[in-house]
Design a protein around this nucleic acid. Structure first.
Lengths: 191, 191
DNA sequence: TATTGTTATACTCTATAACTATA
DNA sequence: TATAGTTATAGAGTATAACAATA
């Protein structure tokens, strides 16, 4: 009853320029809108995985291990997300950073604004393309990145502790094979 | 430069009532604040998993398979999240729903408001505890839930297609063992 | 008094549209 | 003209604080 508007703000450029920033290697768009070809929709395996994921989701500490970090650092998930990519990738065009985080170029501006206000990120112009803006962590930002990185490691360690060594190895092998498959069939966007 | 405030809005009741809605079986609070006991922090395994996850994160289609659904259905991630839990659990106290989605009671009110405006959710009073409000899907909400559920299945199927059958079985076994462990060491909150 | 939700307020996230500067 | 970002605007998510109704 607070806001009379019935339509959420989430809206995507579907009519205008296709080549904006939403282009991915997986372009099915509506995914499964109403056009469910009954052959390749869901399978017993996918439904089994779905059910397992729902069960796991009931354990909140598994679901969002970053939540505690957000609280203790007084940062929003999006801000943490942006910091982590900057720490992992080094200086990055803000447009690319937007892709990484999964938001639009218009939105990344405000996010970087606030990170800059907090002295965690710096903006500089790209000398080679004067239009482009490069974002990079400040010294303080790097320190925070390292701290968060260790927090994530610790969270992952606690998850791994739930698995016997054999299963841990199986998991690693499995993920590595997925990555190999992905690398063969497509490219990570704009790496 | 937009807003002069340097502090983000994310803030959690750390001083007030402990038993609000943030209580989990993993109560380390600050997680790794500054008190990193060097023994049980990160391990080679956790760092390896961390690295693998970062690599996977570069593939955006893997990272947020729900993104396409949000777009096509014109709903926000939080709204989808709430709908999915209502579909999976049936009529639910809005406070419990807040726990599931991972937001506070104050916030869930607005989310349910908007879902109610969209005629996807209904509110009723719990007859046994007149204080409590029960949220449940409308007929239209159930239809949407089924549609989204199938979309998720399809996304999962595409991920599973990246793995040979052996690895799929390994993954299932692995997840089931994690669930078993979790069930032994703790309870899913308020199930 | 304690608990369940809601209301009021403020800030962040997010997208669309219009704009500036550079290629 | 096309591309990289920013500004302006509006709606949704989120938390804190204060409040109402019920136990």
């Amino acid at each position: 009853m607070r806001v009379p508007a019935n339509r959420p703000a989430l809206r995507v450029q579907s009519g205008g320029g296709v080549g904006e920033e939403e282009l991915e290697f997986n372009e099915e768009g509506g995914v499964t809108d109403d056009s469910l070809s009954p052959e390749d929709a869901s399978t017993p395996s996918s439904r089994r995985l779905h059910e397992l994921i729902i069960q796991l989701g009931r354990y909140r500490s598994l679901r969002d291990p970053l939540h505690g970090i957000c609280e203790s650092k007084q940062l929003t998930p999006t801000q943490i997300h942006a910091l982590m990519w900057l720490g992992n990738d080094g200086p990055t065009h803000v447009g690319v950073l937007a892709q990484r985080v999964g938001i639009t170029k218009k939105t990344i501006t405000g996010v970087v604004d606030r990170l800059e206000d907090m002295k965690l990120v710096e903006r500089t112009r790209d000398a080679e393309d004067r239009r482009a803006v490069v974002a990079q962590l400040t010294t303080e930002g790097v320190k925070l990145f390292n701290l968060i990185s260790r927090s994530v490691d610790e969270g992952l360690r606690r998850m791994l502790d739930l698995l016997p060594p054999d299963d841990q190895e199986a998991l690693f092998g499995l993920l590595e094979r997925v990555l190999k498959r992905l690398g063969e069939s497509s490219e990570p966007q704009s790496l």
